[in-house]
C-alpha cells in the first residue's frame, strides 16, 4: 500500500486511481485497505465505501480464478446473448456477480464491450469468443474445469 500511496498525492481526485491500483494489486478491494486509503486521503471511510460500491468495476469480494464475462450489449442481445447467459448460469450454478463454491469461476455481465460485429460475445480471462453458440458454452468452460482452484 505504501508503494501505491507514494504514486498519488493525498487529494480526493486521486481516489478512483488509487482504488483501481488496489484492485489490480489484490484482485479486489480488501475491506481493511479502505481505512488506509481513508487515512491517506483524509476522506471518511463511508465516502470511500460509497464511491467504490457506486462503480461496477470495483468489487469487495475476491473473484474466482477465472473470470467469465458475458456481453449484454444491444447488438449481442438481439443476437441471442440472454440464452448464452442462461446456459452459463445453468452450467455454473451461479448468478452474474457470483463466484462458484470451488472459487474457480466468477460470472459477470457487461453492458457492451464494443466488439458488436462478433456478437454474442463471451470473454474468458481476456480471451474473446465471438459469435457464441449455446453448444460452445461447454467448450469454453471445459478448458478450465480440470484445473484445481488456485
Amino acid at each position: 500500500m505504501r508503494k501505491i500511496f507514494s504514486e498519488f498525492s493525498p487529494d480526493q481526485r486521486e481516489l478512483i486511481h488509487i482504488i483501481h491500483k488496489v484492485q489490480k494489486e489484490y484482485g479486489y478491494i480488501p475491506p481493511e485497505r479502505i481505512s488506509e486509503i481513508s487515512r491517506h486521503l483524509k476522506i471518511s471511510e463511508s465516502e470511500i465505501f460509497g464511491v467504490l460500491t457506486f462503480y461496477k468495476t470495483f468489487t469487495l469480494e475476491p473473484r474466482g480464478k477465472h473470470l467469465i464475462t458475458i456481453c449484454m450489449g444491444t447488438a449481442c442481445h438481439v443476437r441471442g446473448a440472454p440464452a448464452i447467459l442462461d446456459e452459463f448460469r445453468r452450467r455454473l450454478g451461479i448468478e452474474p456477480g457470483e463466484t462458484t463454491e470451488d472459487k474457480l469461476f466468477t460470472l459477470e455481465t457487461v453492458n457492451c464491450v464494443g466488439a458488436c460485429a462478433l456478437g454474442p460475445i463471451v470473454i474468458s480471462d481476456g480471451t474473446y469468443h465471438g459469435q457464441m453458440k449455446m453448444r460452445e458454452v461447454e467448450k469454453v468452460l471445459k478448458k478450465y474445469k480440470n484445473e484445481k482452484a488456485g
Partner: peptide, 25 residues
C-alpha cells in the same frame, strides 16, 4: 487520461466531472 470505473451515468457531463473529482458519478 482518466479511466472510468463502470458507470453508464458518468457519460453525462456533470456526472463525469464528479467522477474526475474522485466522487460518485
Amino acid at each position: 487520461v482518466f479511466r472510468g470505473a463502470g458507470a453508464f451515468v458518468s457519460g453525462e457531463e456533470t456526472s463525469l466531472m464528479a467522477s474526475i473529482e474522485g466522487r460518485r458519478a
